[in-house]
Design a protein around this nucleic acid. Structure first.
Lengths: 378, 378
DNA sequence: TCAACTGATGTAATCGATTACAAATACGAT
DNA sequence: ATCGTATTTGTAATCGATTACATCAGTTGA
């Protein structure tokens, strides 16, 4: 095999289809056909072409082909810094697995709402023909100069978030968090604290909306729900909420975090302050990251099917790309799983007595169920 | 702005350069120049073109441009499943930040040595002109059908690994792990256990080689080093090594893990068996992942500059791509930082007595310093 | 033997930009 | 007025593949 090693940068490298044609003694059309539609070419020529290709180490130029056939077999994946790393890595792996199996390449781009430059890059990419579709792990439809990613008319999939005009792949997070609260209530807890993530985040909104709606039900009148802000899906955010918790009186006995990281940070800080988990306060996280198994105590959590989310997102996108005509937007929901472990237990004896119904109804702060608008994603 | 919304999939979308030229009443050459080299075009025409571009929502077709100018401004990043997720996510972020700032797009592909198909995809990518260079987080130079990624003659950067013929960006991991051992020895420890990652991994080899070479020094004759296999850079692997540890007698008092995940799994398992950390055994991890701060006890570790690794890797690659002539291969080393915290302490009183130098020299198992061959990366 | 048909191959148009080169224009100096 | 130079613009070639269409050879049936 005669490989032309790059001499000068950018110098002519590799063979072109004409070289292969000459070598095999056929026309370029035959070479192209032998490679793309072998059945249309006689066995003999097919072999001659194959030999020439091998000899010259020929690989078709992707740009030229793309220009002609209008397909790049490339999709864009837009991520967001705020994703928790373990969550992110596995979703990405699912996406990659499914995309590469179908022969698609994946362009990865982080988008943190920066000052306009990145936005333009992304929007241009949608319009420049490099991309056949996009998966957004950010929940944001990026816009620049009056155009949005949607305007390019390419299929878009929002993963773990909802956005107008896109296919969506979500989890049943709302039901899960309510189920978590229900289970805690069944353990005798009546005084709850929600550790909120960034309020602009889609998942944060969904979770808070579901939880506060649940506590607003008349049947749950004996339960109280408060809220502490972490500002962030991070362990540091969790430390913050612990400060808030320690300042409360009476102290809630059940804590539901909007992310495992927050819960882990919270647990560490309150235990350092002499509060027992779960003896004094039960803690429930969200996501099911690996380290939920290794903190003290082992964290109860709501496990999201991370790799499956990635895989399904990829499949939905591929289907939309390859559908002969514009398909309707699809919406999928994958189930998460509640996993109660060491960080949750019965309400402590002192506080366990169900709050007397007759007492002046505790003001449920912010119990109105805000319906989350399509907004920032997770 | 008249945006042509994708009608049928694949139907003509958007304006071409000819449309803009007609709209502005100029030639396509002028449009192209107004966009790429504004200085070459008179102010008036520049503005007319700008207006036409805005009106039609024109974005140049990337494939056509690429075909002509032979630049895709796209690089490939090859990852590997075995990377720890938090590590991976931050390195990726550094890469993305630097690449996108320089106007490069990033194609991400996972490579786990699969059965030939993925290899061909990757090698073809190098030869098809889609890619101007690659960063390999895998330490493997992928090969398929007699060609390797190197043969394309494009610049390649190995991150956290070394591979023949590529630029490399490494950390001083060898020195750090030796320094860690030295510090532990200074705390009175004489009996060490190394928790190994996957033996085929480049970093694993470097670390083990450095550590075993250190223990082989005559001056360290009073120290003993054993080795347990985790098989993996994972918490599960850490659990495995804990089994091995519990079976040893006498039990080592100092443990050095080749990854934080392993250390965390190890600590959890030995503590469950009633062993105190650091009262009975000190544990040192490697990487400095976020959760090292949140396990019990807080893990001593060797912090790697993750985002900086990604940024430097990107810069090295960009430089190599944009260098007018083939530059020599560069090799960079970034410093990691030893961070001793709660999981390490003085050797326990019983075992603290320095092993008598005179006693029959303890057999140092596997103390020969294997020089790591370029192999699988981290 | 010829027409009709099938299948394999080649010729040349095409995708949409960039840019070498030519042409046109403006400007200044003599 | 004329020439030379600098600046701006247009014409057309070019990048490297794919594929519509034309051509040609071979087969079959009458």
């Amino acid at each position: 095999m005669d490989l032309v090693r790059g001499k000068q940068n950018g110098a002519a490298r590799g063979a072109r289809i004409g070289d292969v044609a000459r070598e095999a003694g056929v026309s370029t059309a035959t070479v192209s056909r032998a490679l793309a539609h072998p059945a249309q070419v006689s066995k003999e020529l097919r072999e001659r072409v194959g030999a020439a290709v091998a000899k010259l180490g020929y690989t078709p130029n992707a740009a030229a082909r793309q220009l002609r056939v209008k397909r790049s077999r490339t999709v864009l994946v837009v991520t967001r810094r705020r994703w928790s790393a373990p969550f992110f890595a596995e979703v990405l792996r699912g996406l990659d697995a499914e995309l590469s199996a179908a022969g698609y390449a994946m362009v990865l781009a982080n988008f943190d709402g920066d000052g306009g430059n990145r936005s333009r890059q992304l929007v241009d990419m949608m319009f420049s023909g490099t991309i056949e579709g996009a998966v957004m792990l950010s929940g944001i439809v990026v816009a620049a100069e009056g155009r949005t990613m949607l305007d390019a008319g390419l299929p878009l999939v929002s993963l773990c978030a909802a956005a107008e005009g896109t296919h969506t792949v979500l989890t049943n997070e709302a039901e899960c968090i309510v189920e978590g609260a229900r289970r805690l209530a069944a353990l005798g807890h009546t005084d709850f604290l929600y550790l909120a993530g960034p309020p602009s985040n889609y998942n944060e909104r969904v979770r808070w909306a579901a939880l506060s709606a649940f506590f607003a039900e008349p049947r749950q009148a004996g339960l109280r729900l408060r809220r502490a802000e972490s500002g962030d899906f991070s362990t540091d955010g969790g430390l913050l909420t612990a400060q808030a918790f320690l300042g409360l009186s009476p102290r809630p006995t059940a804590v539901i975090a909007s992310a495992d990281e927050i819960a882990i940070g919270f647990m560490k800080a309150v235990r350092a302050a002499g509060i027992g988990v779960p003896s004094d306060v039960s803690v429930l996280g969200f996501d099911g990251i690996e380290f939920a198994d290794f903190c003290e105590p082992v964290l109860s959590t709501i496990r999201q099917p991370r790799e499956a989310l990635g895989r399904l997102g990829a499949r939905v996108l591929i289907e939309a790309i390859e559908a002969p005509s514009l398909p309707p937007l699809s919406h999928h929901v994958l189930p998460s799983r509640l996993d109660f472990r060491a960080s949750t237990g019965p309400a402590p004896a002192g506080a366990a007595a169900p709050r007397p119904q007759a007492a002046p109804a505790p003001k449920r702060k912010s119990a109105r169920a805000r319906v989350p608008a399509p907004a920032e994603g997770r």
